[in-house]
Design a protein around this nucleic acid. Structure first.
Length: 592
RNA sequence: GCCCUCGUAGCUCAGGGGAUAGAGCACCGGUUUCCUAAACCGGGUGUCGCAGGUUCGAAUCCUGCCGAGGGCGCCA
């Protein structure tokens, strides 16, 4: 419930009294804040159906509204806009209610769902790069949002660790170090002892091997055939390959935990394609037996085309003609696992938009195969790519990919420089400076990404990510830090927040109007799976606070009741900012 | 060829069928005996790719065209 929804309820009832659809009563924030706080355009829309002029209708609707405690002024403007201004008393009591509520007036979901957020999705054996930033950052935010809204939410990294790339790496390593025991088909752990505990490669080796083998596979069909064979044997449990796979896996995951950890991206489970290996064969057999899947050119496919399709819809490939499995297979089996073991209601796949066809195929196959019922919602939450100034996927000047770890270091050191320029930083000890630099750097990076709508391909600009002024993550932090500072000083002077009084200053009133929008903003962000809605709102809250802060000196205020009210207002603003910042996935330092 | 996404200020991007399309950056000027100047205040920018259509009303919905990016069974 928000102020806006309370107004909508009033106007919906008024339209209903005129015998019209209540949805005409939808109230929106005013587009002309100098005229009113809110507006209702329903009279214009309903005019035709009601066969009455919009102004007459607006007049009649306004006549039904009787809420003197909430509404200060109603007027009809232009062709039939209803302009609505709320009373200062109502505003104060809404903000007061937020202040006294640990959830800031946001109700938890009445019917909580089990939501799996599938994001990150790094391939094993590849260092994370800027391309992984969006999936991680958007997914993390969506996960936190659904969790805050009261859903049982599970973030799953879903590592790409069971497909062809692993087979390729096995072949590449065999060619480089053929003497390793993993490649000896005669090797028997029972006789020869366990495979070495030490990995034969580190992540740098793997990162270098991967493009090498990819190139070889492309130009040499024989190498490609060996890679397919190795993939097949791995998936069918060849011990040496499994032992090697374990090393590749552990080496990769260690690095991924470091990078994602540095970004405060926290997965609840570190499952991967390999997690569902045991399900693959029985699932495919069952789909064949049920007639959902069929053989085609030696492969197993599921026809997912539908009569209503506007274009040719390719089938989903479950098994290659050599018997090995693909990511389609593991994705399908993962859905099965999530339904069986995790009791999933909703799956949100935060994955590159380029994979939309794949997901559509998998979702259709899941429904055809009875793996999910109609009560389970599967959704691809697609996002755009990170490009360079020429619209091409971003590369460093040297032509390589920019590692995520290097990017984090870069923004962190930029934040540190900025901190050291500030004269107040000199008395911070080294550990605090490090922590602030990291928090500010991560905020700049994440906000820089999240303030774009997720579906847009955006241009990667290092200077933008390393800038801390204007519409940035650090601006939000800075606003919160100034409030923390005020509250600390107030506490030292023995001052405490009190009852929220009716606003008397424009900037104060604007801030209050902004704050009470919180519930509907989070609603909208969740509905659209769009963290940029949160980012935009957080920025507006911060700017409204800054204007208020510049205009009203809280600690010097002589009217003690007013001062206590202002302390309550900024404390509520702080709580709101801290929530929003947390939903965006970063933190606010105590000072900066 | 077919399908998907996108095209908004010099740049990067917001924008929920409504009134006068907004931010940040960049540029110019102002604000600090006062709660953190990573801030605030002021200054001007637009054929919302083009053309139709629906509508009382379209940046927003529909169609076509132009342009960019992406996808289209044995990669992920």
């Amino acid at each position: 419930m928000s102020l806006r929804s309370e107004l909508t309820a009033l106007f919906s009832a008024a339209f209903a009294e005129e015998g019209l659809d209540p949805s005409f009563g939808d109230v929106a924030v005013s587009q002309r804040p100098e005229l009113a706080d809110f507006q209702c355009n329903g009279a214009l829309a309903a005019s035709k159906e009601a066969q009455r002029s919009p102004r007459d209708l607006a007049l009649a609707v306004v006549g039904h509204i009787d809420a003197p405690g909430v509404i200060r002024e109603l007027s009809i403007a232009g062709p039939g806009f209803i302009n609505i201004s709320v009373t200062n008393g109502a505003l104060a009591s809404w903000v007061g209610a937020m202040k006294d509520d640990t959830r800031l007036g946001v109700e938890a979901a009445a019917m909580p769902k089990t939501v799996i957020v599938d994001y990150g999705g790094p391939n094993m054996s590849k260092a994370l790069h800027v391309g992984h930033l969006r999936a991680a950052v958007i997914g993390e935010s969506i996960k936190r949002l659904f969790r805050f809204l009261g859903h049982r939410t599970i973030g799953d990294i879903h590592i790409g660790d069971w497909g062809m790339p692993v087979g390729q790496l096995i072949v590449e390593l065999e060619d480089r170090q053929p003497g390793l025991p993993y490649f000896d088909p005669e090797y028997d752990e029972a006789v020869d002892g366990p495979y070495p505990a030490e990995s034969p490669v580190d992540l740098d080796d793997l990162s270098e091997m991967y493009p090498a083998i990819t190139a070889r596979v492309q130009e040499d069909p024989e190498v490609a055939e060996r890679a397919r064979r190795a993939t097949f044997e791995l998936q069918n449990g060849r011990p040496g390959y499994l032992a090697l796979w374990r090393h590749f896996h552990d080496v990769s995951v260690a690095e991924q935990k470091k990078d994602f950890g540095a970004l405060d991206v926290e997965f609840d489970v570190w499952f991967g394609e390999s997690t569902v290996n045991e399900r693959l064969e029985p699932m495919v057999k069952r789909l064949l037996a049920d007639g959902v899947a069929r053989e085609s050119d030696g492969a197993v496919i599921v026809d997912v085309a539908e009569p209503s399709d506007k274009k040719e819809f390719p089938p989903l490939l479950l098994t290659r003609s050599d018997g090995s499995y693909l990511y389609s297979t593991t994705d399908l089996a993962t859905i099965e696992m999530r339904v069986d073991d995790l009791d999933m209601d909703v799956a949100l796949y935060v994955v590159d938009a380029r994979q939309s066809l794949h997901f559509e195929q998998v979702f259709r196959a899941a429904r055809r195969g009875g793996i999910v019922g109609d009560d389970v919602h599967l959704e691809h939450v697609a996002f755009g790519t990170v490009n360079d100034a020429h619209g091409k996927p971003f590369r460093t000047r040297e032509g390589g990919v920019l590692r995520l770890g290097d990017l984090i270091d870069l923004v962190t050191s930029a934040a540190r420089s900025r901190l050291e320029e500030a004269n107040i930083a000199s008395d911070y000890d080294g550990a605090e400076r490090d922590r602030i630099a990291r928090q500010v750097g991560v905020a700049a990076l994440k906000f820089g990404d999240l303030s774009n709508h997720r579906t847009t391909d955006y241009v990667f600009d290092i200077d933008r990510f390393a800038s801390f002024e204007g519409k940035t993550g650090p601006y939000l932090q800075y606003s919160a830090v100034r409030i923390k500072s005020i509250l600390r000083r107030a506490f030292d002077e023995g001052l405490e927040p009190g009852a929220v009084l009716a606003p008397t200053v424009d900037q104060e009133r604007a801030l209050m109007l902004q704050l009470v929008r919180l519930p509907e903003i989070l609603d909208r962000a969740a509905k659209l799976r769009a963290p940029n809605v949160i980012a935009e709102f957080a920025y507006e809250v911060a700017t409204d606070f800054s204007r208020f802060y510049e205009h009203c000196h809280i600690l010097n205020e002589e009217d003690v009741a007013r001062q206590a009210s202002w302390l309550a207002l900024v404390a509520t603003t702080l709580d709101t900012l801290l929530l929003l910042v947390d939903l965006l996935g970063f933190e606010v330092p105590d000072r900066m």
